[in-house]
């Protein structure tokens, strides 16, 4: 259990703006997985997702270094919103269909680390997590959007409501249906609730 007090994102941003590169490294390491997953769930390609993740952080660097960073919101929501917008822009430019291309057997999602697992356990977990990401992508667009914004981009339901032009109750309802539908899809796909399987 980690008992050290974690420096807040806000403090790290201030340190970075003052010239402390180590503070920025901590921010990147703290948020890289959420930023990357937010993008990956939209573009569905690891190379493109890594490129867009770099673009997102570079945009953030320029905003912070030029003194245009707005202290009001959370850093995590802000950086994930940049990532989300870049991924959506990419999607539109590519004129890709938002329909799902499943990745059966591909090595697209093959880099999760489970240091203490056996090879077999690792494969079972990896298959399960890859299947879960596929299932997320089969959700209706409005539900998937709210789920990604809240769970991965760390935006509040009010921020999501403002961003998508709906009431907070609609955003909450969409999230509720997203989670309920995801659960049904998991049960239909024989993805069981096994705590040992899902523990990190």
């Amino acid at each position: 259990m980690n008992t050290t007090t974690q420096v807040s994102d806000s403090a790290l941003v201030s340190l970075y703006i003052a010239g402390n590169e180590n503070a920025f490294e901590q921010l990147v390491n703290r948020h890289k997985n959420k930023v990357y997953t937010t993008i990956l769930l939209i573009v569905k390609d690891t190379y493109t997702a890594e490129d867009l993740m770099q673009d997102a952080f570079i945009k953030a660097i320029h905003t912070m270094k030029s003194g245009r960073y707005n202290e009001e919101g959370k850093f995590s929501s802000w950086i994930c919103r940049i990532a989300h917008n870049l991924a959506i822009d990419f999607f539109r430019k590519e004129k890709r269909s938002p329909m799902i291309t499943l990745e059966d057997g591909s090595n697209v999602f093959n880099t999760m680390a489970f240091a203490e697992d056996s090879a077999e356990q690792f494969q079972v977990k990896e298959d399960t997590h890859a299947r879960l990401r596929e299932l997320i992508q089969t959700l209706p667009q409005s539900q998937r959007e709210v789920l990604m914004m809240r769970h991965y981009a760390d935006m509040s339901f009010q921020e999501i409501a403002d961003s998508t032009g709906v009431s907070i109750n609609t955003a909450l309802g969409r999230m509720r249906y997203a989670l309920i539908n995801l659960r049904k899809k998991m049960l239909n796909s024989n993805i069981a609730y096994d705590k040992n399987l899902y523990s990190e």
């Binding site: 890289k32 997985n33 959420k34 890594e50 993740m53 660097i61 977990k125 990401r133 997320i136 769970h151």
Partner: peptide, 27 residues
Amino acid sequence: IQNLLDTALKSPHQRAVQNILNYSKSL
């Protein structure tokens, strides 16, 4: 379900992370 969604998080390659850090340092 919330816990399960956390496990679906993916990590980017370290190379991509290093590119970001190098870019910031170069600025």
